[in-house]
């Protein structure tokens, strides 16, 4: 039985991924967590570490459009896949309707849960353009906020849904 003591024993992985629409190539340790890859290697600090057990959602990022807990996902999983972080949501300088709605409704207070919450909302609206309040409450069960009590967040998501639907209608 071999025991790997130091990271020097393990070959690095050649990671090829796309982050906010831009190609990224890095040599990484297999054990590197996606959250640390984003925050420390790429300097994308929007995703946060809080509970570290996949319950709170402050580390939410979108992997091929699906929300994942970056705190408990290996960076390895991003291989040949698309990552979207909060920094990528307004890449061309224009705020995403969700961001605009969050500002409009002051749907945030301390802001620590906000990037994860907005990305979770994005993935909800991508798959369900017209969610009910109950749909939202169920979807955001894993995106905790200790400051707001959620009401303005739900209002903001509803407003963004309308904005996006309006755009879709053209």
């Amino acid at each position: 039985m071999t025991e790997l003591h130091s990271s020097g024993d393990v070959p690095r992985l050649h990671l090829r991924t796309s982050v906010n629409g831009k190609p990224v190539v890095r040599e990484i340790e297999p054990r590197l967590l996606l959250l640390d890859f984003l925050r420390d290697d790429l300097g994308l600090k929007g995703a946060k570490r809080s509970c570290d057990v996949q319950v709170c959602g402050t580390c939410t990022v979108l992997l091929d459009g699906l929300p994942v807990s970056a705190c408990t996902t290996l960076a390895y999983e991003a291989m040949d896949r698309q990552l979207l972080t909060i920094e990528g949501l307004s890449a061309d300088g224009e705020l995403h309707p969700l961001q605009a709605a969050f500002i409009d409704h002051s749907a945030l207070q301390c802001g620590f849960c906000t990037p994860g919450m907005i990305l979770a909302a994005k993935s909800l609206l991508d798959e369900q353009p017209n969610p009910t309040r109950a749909d939202m409450q169920a979807y955001f069960k894993g995106n905790l906020c200790r400051c707001t009590g959620y009401y303005y967040i739900l209002d903001a998501v509803a407003e963004a849904a309308e904005t996006l639907a309006g755009r879709a209608r053209g």
Partner: peptide, 21 residues
């Protein structure tokens, strides 16, 4: 008045800095 939060833009874009950042 219900003025919008002055720190909202920073926080919704992930630019707001917390000590761990």
């Amino acid at each position: 008045q219900n003025v919008r939060r002055v720190d909202a833009h920073e926080k919704v874009t992930g630019q707001a800095q917390f000590t761990g950042d």
